[in-house]
């Protein structure tokens, strides 16, 4: 009997699922060596089927998405129980990712923006309710929790696989590893390891030429003229977070002239990706007078969204600390 495999999405966009399917023929290796026990995005499955499985009966679960609702939390806990190996798969599960930016505001103001904002057509001013009465009976929605949490803020996690989404070649390598482990040809890495990623930062894989940094301007890409195709983007005034972002993506974005936005998350030896990038920028700014410094910093219109685009819910900031402290469903 083949070992069981599961994949689940919590608060996420679905990109992680597509990234897994994007590994081409390698997906057949997965099928050949595993029974897919539970993968709602790929095949029909009911929660009751999952509940019926014995604890520990699933060998590996790839869990993507952050914990936004009570349902997300329930599934995280259920899958933790059912799985021998739980992998926080992708940026949302690891660091909160884009959903985690909601921690900058309260749950109430977030719902207000979503259901009452100027871009929403909602003449009856409806708001989602935990329970709604319809002619057929009562419908329930899982409650939205006060803050977005990462998987490891809710349950114990065995491995972390970063990326938004994880790169297909990294997923393929991890699938290869799992298959080899199942076939007894390889050992699992130590528990708690980051898998499917590098041990340095994006710059390590970036082919662009680097010089001593003297930042005199920071601009958004549309504000800059044609870019030098070989020179470090940061040196050209583009806010590239590659220096503070874990390697593993093969520097896909900066390689083609788009700045790194940080999706592979905090670097191996760092605690807080945003803080690290901010101190790096502050250190590299080549200005002494407050006005000149402000002028350069004005080139970063959205600091929280720039430095913590992916890692807020797992950061040292209040948005991260709040998520860390939130242990009970309200």
């Amino acid at each position: 009997m083949k070992p069981k495999f599961a994949m689940y999405w919590a608060a996420s966009c679905g990109g992680c699922e597509i990234a897994v399917l994007n590994i081409d023929a390698k997906i057949l290796d997965l099928d050949a060596n595993f029974d897919v026990a539970f993968w709602p995005a790929a095949m029909d499955a009911k929660y009751k089927d999952l509940d019926a499985m014995a604890d520990g009966s699933i060998l590996v679960t790839l869990f993507n998405g952050s914990i936004r609702t009570a349902e997300n939390e329930h599934l995280a806990k259920t899958l933790r129980r059912k799985s021998k190996i739980l992998v926080a798969f992708g940026s949302c599960a690891n660091e909160g990712c884009i959903p985690g930016l909601a921690n900058l505001s309260s749950r109430e103001s977030m719902l207000e923006t979503a259901y009452g904002g100027p871009s929403t057509e909602n003449p009856a001013q409806l708001r989602p309710q935990p329970t709604s009465q319809v002619p057929e009976g009562a419908l329930t929605l899982p409650p939205v929790q006060p803050v977005v949490r990462t998987l490891d803020q809710v349950v114990e996690v065995d491995y972390h696989m970063p990326g938004c989404p994880p790169e297909s070649h990294q997923i393929a390598a991890v699938v290869d590893l799992l298959v080899q482990v199942v076939q007894g040809r390889a050992e699992l890495p130590p528990k708690g390891s980051v898998i499917g990623a590098g041990e340095s930062t994006v710059c390590d894989e970036c082919p662009r030429e680097r010089n001593v940094k003297h930042l005199t301007q920071l601009r958004r890409i549309q504000e800059l003229g044609p870019l030098d195709t070989t020179l470090c983007l940061l040196e050209q005034g583009l806010m590239c977070t590659g220096p503070a972002t874990r390697s593993g993506c093969d520097a896909r974005c900066p390689r083609v002239g788009a700045p790194c936005i940080g999706c592979y998350g905090v670097a191996p030896e760092a605690l807080d990706q945003g803080a690290r990038m901010m101190t790096a920028i502050a250190s590299a700014i080549d200005a002494k007078e407050p006005e000149a410094i402000d002028g350069i910093l004005d080139g970063i219109p959205d600091p929280a969204g720039t430095f913590y685009k992916f890692s807020l819910a797992h950061s040292l900031l209040r948005g991260g600390r709040a998520a860390h402290r939130e242990t009970e469903t309200p």
């Binding site: 680097r210 010089n211 001593v212 670097a267």
Partner: peptide, 27 residues
Amino acid sequence: DAERCSGCRICNALCPFNAISYDAAGG
């Protein structure tokens, strides 16, 4: 830690004692 260093060179200009050097070959 050379394993962790990506050679981004942000530190290069900062040292008031000129103790930091960059090894272009090793990056």
